[in-house]
Nucleic acid binder design. Structure first.
Length: 275
DNA sequence: CTTTAACCCTGGAGGC
DNA sequence: TGCCTCCAGGGTTAAA
């Protein structure tokens, strides 16, 4: 599942090959994604120069002079660059052909999306899918006070609040569990009851978890492939708790527990992590 | 306002 | 070997 490190790794990959280059042709093989890919999108962007490849949360933002393409990888999506003429694989739904290289969006589950936001519709920050996103975890303004304020009045668990992404983005299901373990916070703790000191620990934990994942190539998913087409080194994050239920905690040897919160699996150490 | 559950989809795993 | 069922998950949306 592409989380922030995977998306950032992808962004760097496509930035290197696309920015400053003319998109010769965009081809949609399968428009049925999370939302239908607009029929007129290929005609709108083909022949235009890519000005920048940015990221906001898990959204990739491909900027042109006349608008921005929003790409989300969902949970099974990947973007890779291929040489011209390489056979189309099953689930290769969209391709962007540049002069020397082609980018292909591969997404078996089709939870991903490709959308268009014209420049005359206002700044991309106002797009309904972007405007409600929380702060970037590496934004200088992101600190314990920000978390405390964001979690105020929230009766849901800290795990679910973290996952919601409207306070801070970047923690998907894997890194939410991992970050809470690093911060020694029990996932069931009510969000509003997390103290400032523990928020401070969580800030550090989240940043270090994401940083470590990014360093290892942003690879947490079995079939994750980065934007240059190299297979990522799988599970290099060396998960402390994720999918380790029943196995000994790396810190205290207590068996890791698996619970379900909001229909999602959560993993934690019942001894190291306190409410 | 906050919170919860359903939904989109396919591949993989396990049962028989 | 094959068929069936169940499950995973990001994130939006409708409903409570």
């Amino acid at each position: 599942m592409p989380e922030l490190p995977e998306v950032e790794t992808t962004r760097r990959g496509i930035d290197a090959v696309a920015t400053g280059h003319t998109l010769k042709r965009m081809i949609v093989h399968e428009p049925r994604m999370r939302w239908p890919i607009p029929k007129d999108l290929p005609g709108l962007v083909s022949g235009h120069v890519v000005r920048a490849c940015r990221r906001r949360g898990k959204y990739l933002l491909i900027e042109f002079d006349h608008g921005t393409q929003l790409i989300h990888l969902g949970m099974s999506g990947s973007l890779r660059s291929v040489l011209h003429g390489e056979l189309l694989r099953k689930h290769d739904h969209v391709e962007w052909q540049f002069e020397h290289v082609t980018l292909r969006l591969h997404d078996p589950r089709r939870f991903g999306s490709v959308l268009w936001h014209p420049i005359n519709a206002g700044p991309i920050e106002h797009h309904p899918l972007i405007s409600k996103l929380g702060i970037e975890p590496f934004d200088p303004d992101f600190d314990a006070k920000w978390l405390k304020k964001g979690f105020a009045g929230r009766k849901m668990s800290i795990k679910q609040a973290l996952l919601a992404g409207d306070v801070v983005v970047g923690a998907g299901n894997i890194y939410a569990s991992e970050s809470l373990f690093r911060a020694c916070i029990h996932p069931k703790t009510q969000a509003s009851r997390v103290s400032l000191a523990r928020c401070e620990r969580l800030v550090i934990a989240l940043q270090s978890t994401l940083h470590d994942a990014l360093q290892s190539g942003g690879s947490t998913l079995r079939d994750y492939v980065n934007a240059t087409g190299e297979a990522g080194a799988y599970f290099t994050l060396h998960a402390a708790v994720y999918e380790r239920d029943g196995q000994p905690c790396r810190n205290c040897a207590t068996p890791i527990k698996r619970i379900v919160q909001g229909q999602r699996a959560t993993y934690f150490c019942p001894r190291c992590q306190k409410v």
